[in-house]
Amino acid sequence: MLAPICLFTYNRLAETKETVEALKKNLLASESHLLVFSDGAKNEQAQEKIKGVRQYLKTIEGFKSIQIFEASENKGLANSIISGVTNALEQYGKVIVLEDDLTTAPNFLNFMNQALDYYETIDVVQSINGFSPEIKKQNMFDVFYHTRTFPWGWATWKDRWDADIFSKEKIKKEISEDKTILMNLQNTCGSDITKMLLDSINDKNDSWYVRWVYAHFRKQTVGVYPKYALVNNSGFNENGTHCKAINPYKSVNDTDFRNKVQFNFNSQVRIDPIINKQFLRYFSKEYRVLIRLKLLLEKGGLKILLDDIKSKI
């Protein structure tokens, strides 16, 4: 049985249409159940936009079945995803999750479903990812692994998901009892992760994702990544709730890879040290500073210095 697709939407009509249209072009779309979760408005200004999104959602075709869940109040992204995924897993046992700013390759569902089947009995794998940052080292397989999973198109199983792992009080207690956790988390998952986690558990951001990463770290599990990206993020614009700058992650849209129907997985699940170094660079302080400089220079038109920075990122 194919995994159902959970799509989470808010008030971005253009991005939602782009996400759905790309998903409809997937080879397995017509065989897949689509569950759409439409969050309620934060304020009056968002109500009309959400109304437009919901009108569009009712016109969607091209899937085996379509269910739309309209929240009467604003849950926020974290609560919406945690509750929606939990409910879907209770019914189906596995899910593929997308937000409303992600466009997928035509074989995205092939990769996700094949990986869900392949790794179902390999407990060290907690999630499957559709996006992958550019990693220069290649191997004979179509995947690599990392503890830091990613939120841009992902999947998991019921036995590796529990709403309790997102408990802010539980995480606070663990951190207070073991003073080494935050340093080890940073060394394993990137220099940005500890502040993001602390902000999440102290209600300074609405990130479910950083708590999902923390769960991987605590359980010593990994996420599976495709060799090349099968998802693009279109949400880095003025309409984005969480993404308003530029996309900091290089990725490769390899045409041959995006046309594959069968994928070559690896049962020897381990984090390659060379890939690990390349992967974590995207979350280093140096890289984030260079990305910010790049944005500023692009606005200012300083081409020579910009070219120098581009050569380093």
Rank of each mutant, 00 (worst) to 15 (best):
V97Q: 03
S83M: 10
Q91F: 12
Q67R: 15
M112H: 07
Y119V: 08
I68M: 00
K42Q: 10
K51Y: 07
V97M: 07
K75W: 11
T103K: 14
T121H: 15
I82E: 11
E44N: 14
G62V: 06
N74Y: 11
K42V: 03
V53N: 00
N74W: 12
P106G: 02
L77S: 09
E61K: 15
Y92S: 06
D123M: 07
T59R: 13
G76Y: 07
K94N: 12
I50Y: 00
F63N: 04
K94S: 12
V95M: 11
S80C: 11
K42R: 14
I60F: 05
E120R: 14
V53C: 03
S80R: 09
A105R: 01
S65I: 03
E99P: 01
N87T: 14
Q55A: 06
E61S: 15
V53K: 02
G93Q: 05
I66N: 09
I81G: 00
D100H: 03
T103F: 09
K42G: 05
Q45G: 12
A41N: 02
S80Q: 13
T121E: 15
R54Y: 01
K51N: 03
I68F: 00
Q45H: 14
Q55I: 05
E44H: 08
A71F: 07
D101A: 09
K94T: 09
I68V: 09
E73I: 10
K42M: 05
I81L: 14
G93V: 04
K42T: 04
N74D: 08
Q67I: 07
E61I: 10
Y119L: 03
K42H: 06
N74H: 15
L102M: 13
Y92P: 00
G93F: 02
A71H: 13
I60M: 11
N113M: 08
S72D: 13
G84S: 15
I68P: 00
R54A: 00
S72V: 05
N79K: 13
Y92R: 06
